[in-house]
Design a protein around this nucleic acid. Structure first.
Length: 214
DNA sequence: CTCTAGATCTAT
DNA sequence: TAGATCTAGAGG
């Protein structure tokens, strides 16, 4: 154990170590990574926000996961290495931001369902075209998340990897571990009783508007 | 080629 | 409570 440890003096900058730790969360299967991502912060295009609600989609066996029907051009990023972005269009209108998890070749991802803006509120409000709503409601809902962060599959954000220079999205570690709650995933009743009811949604327990459908 | 059902959001 | 708006995937 000690033989593998670098000398203390080698660790002059902690930033790369911390970044590696956060990305390490994504190496876990999505159902394990999803709760650990609550409290972490996302930053993109001038907006920074704490993740307050996540949802896991895991494996081709999961009938609610897009990979349930196998590998296709759209779902290709789901099979890529952890830290890859999977962004897709839902209902013809909304962009959904997912962070790919687990080992390469295993389709597994966490949908970011809600974030709490911590910096860049004015920019986020402009993008959301909403100057009045309470801050907590500005980006609660997966479509709102991508809009606030200005992430969009039309801008080729799907398939990019966290940590690469061209990737506009950064993931920062959690500064605290808030109490969590969990429950069933939203809008996946079509996946049948088993997969439709899996309690694979997690949220920050005390966040005002997390943990509900709206 | 056509058809249809979405991991939703907003205003009425 | 319905309308917006588009595309992947299935079926012909």
């Amino acid at each position: 154990m000690l033989s593998g440890m670098p000398p203390a003096t080698a660790n002059t900058s902690t930033a790369p170590t911390i970044a590696r730790d956060v990305l390490g969360i994504l190496r876990l299967p999505a159902p394990q990574a999803a709760p650990l991502l609550i409290g972490c912060e996302l930053e993109a295009h001038g907006v920074r926000a704490r993740i307050v609600e996540t949802e896991a989609y895991h494996s081709e066996a999961d009938l609610a996961c897009h990979a349930a029907r196998g590998r296709t051009p759209r779902t290709e990023p789901l099979y890529a290495k952890s830290g890859t972005l999977y962004v897709y269009l839902c209902y013809g209108l909304h962009q959904m931001l997912n962070l790919v998890c687990d080992v390469e070749g295993t389709p597994s991802a966490v949908l970011i369902r809600a974030i709490a803006i911590t910096a860049g509120e004015d920019v986020a409000r402009e993008r959301r075209q909403n100057l009045r709503t309470p801050l907590a409601r500005l980006a609660n809902g997966p479509g709102r998340v991508a809009q606030a962060l200005a992430l969009n599959r039309n801008h080729n954000h799907s398939g990019l990897e966290l940590g690469q220079a061209i990737c506009p999205l950064k993931l920062h570690p959690a500064s605290s571990r808030p109490p969590l709650a969990n429950g069933g995933r939203i809008g996946v009743a079509y996946a049948g009783p088993e997969w439709g009811a899996k309690p694979w949604r997690w949220w920050e327990r005390d966040f005002p508007v997390a943990g509900r459908a709206s």
